[in-house]
């Protein structure tokens, strides 16, 4: 089975003043299609940098990163935008919904950049909001929704263009435990439907939900552990 993500000797350098920081220092791994992976590690371990590379928000300094057969390092700004639009669904800790737009309009955003016509896009957004359990609230503004509901809108938005990969950065970080569990349940369900989920978290309970945990420290992978098949 071909891997969805294939990284080999990934290096990412940042220059901060006179100092060069090795945010990623030779990282290699593969993630299968339909995988469910948690990337864990302390602050500064390079997990966010890795996530930005996988999400096509940044390009590697050295090494190769192929996602869905596409070479991230070889893409220009416009290619990366299309890649983010089609292949990746982002879920953020702070939801990042646009406050002026309704839930439905927020979900429509990626479809707008994909050039989908309004009628199709509204139907798709409505369908996705029903799927994440917010069918009743499609015309609510983010301020009229609870944190858990806002994150559901964000997940619906991430799914809008039917991406291969859901990238979630501390998706439960701003939620209480119960709501966090509901959101994790949603991720598990989506993974069950075949979407690859990659979580970045420092919450071990959240990481335990995944079927594989990659632990990072100082820009390197220090542990890559597959959970028991039953989990």
């Amino acid at each position: 089975m071909a891997g969805l993500i294939a990284a080999s000797d990934l290096v990412k350098l940042y220059t901060m003043g006179d100092e060069t920081v090795h945010a990623l220092d030779g990282v290699s791994f593969e993630i299968d299609r339909g995988g469910y992976v948690a990337i864990v590690g302390p602050s500064g371990s390079g997990k966010s940098t890795l996530m930005n590379l996988i999400g096509g928000l940044d390009t590697p300094t050295d090494g190769h990163l192929y996602i869905d057969g596409q070479d991230i390092g070889a893409m220009d700004d416009s290619d990366l935008a299309v890649f983010r639009n089609r292949t990746i669904g982002f879920v953020f800790q702070s939801f990042n919904l646009l406050p002026r737009l309704t839930a439905q309009e927020n979900v429509e955003l990626p479809l707008i950049y994909a050039g989908v016509e309004p009628k199709t896009r509204k139907a798709r957004a409505s369908e996705l909001l029903h799927r994440v359990g917010l069918g009743e609230r499609i015309s609510h503004k983010p301020t009229q929704l609870s944190g858990g509901q806002q994150q559901r809108v964000a997940i619906a938005r991430a799914l809008a263009c039917e991406p291969q990969l859901l990238l979630a950065d501390e998706p439960t970080g701003a939620l209480d435990t119960t709501t966090g569990k509901e959101i994790m349940g949603l991720f598990r369900a989506l993974n069950g439907e075949g979407v690859c989920v990659v979580l970045v978290t420092h919450d071990l309970d959240v990481a335990a939900q995944a079927r594989r945990t990659i632990e990072m420290r100082d820009g390197k992978i220090v542990r890559d552990q597959h959970a028991a098949a039953s989990a």
């Binding site: 999400g55 928000l57 700004d77 935008a81 299309v82 983010r84 639009n85 089609r86 990042n96 646009l98």
Partner: peptide
């Protein structure tokens, strides 16, 4: 700024 970052993450090109 955040909105711009979000739009870019969701697939907006520089030109958009």
């Amino acid at each position: 700024t955040r909105e711009i970052g979000l739009r870019k993450a969701l697939g907006a090109r520089r030109g958009d």
